[in-house]
Amino acid sequence: MIISAADQHFDQKTKAQAALYQVIDPELFVNVIDLGLIYEIEFKENGAIDVLMTLSTPHCPMGDAITNGVKNALEAEFPGKNVNINLTFNPPWNFAMLTPSGKEQLGV
């Protein structure tokens, strides 16, 4: 996920990103940002936060835990805002989506 400095929600998105560094994939022990699971975070006019994200595999048994973690972390960071998680496998997650830090944590 790349946040443009020109983005009108730059500060909020940076805060959201920082919160999501605390959400760890329990199987891989790497946070969802460094894994590249978060595609987009949108702050809506109505106060809602829409997250477009993926999982490392469509059959991930920890999928619920990861999406819950993202929702919980953002609700804690932005009290009172409604967080919607939209899961997509288009495009499917792949190796190139890892950040350099994520690659390092996975020993790549």
């Binding site: 329990p26 199987e27 973690g69 929702k71």
Partner: peptide
């Protein structure tokens, strides 16, 4: 461990 972890922490993750 993942099955038991899910039962205990699925809803606490991120909080």
């Amino acid at each position: 461990p993942f099955i038991v972890w899910n039962a205990h922490y699925k809803n606490l993750s991120g909080k």
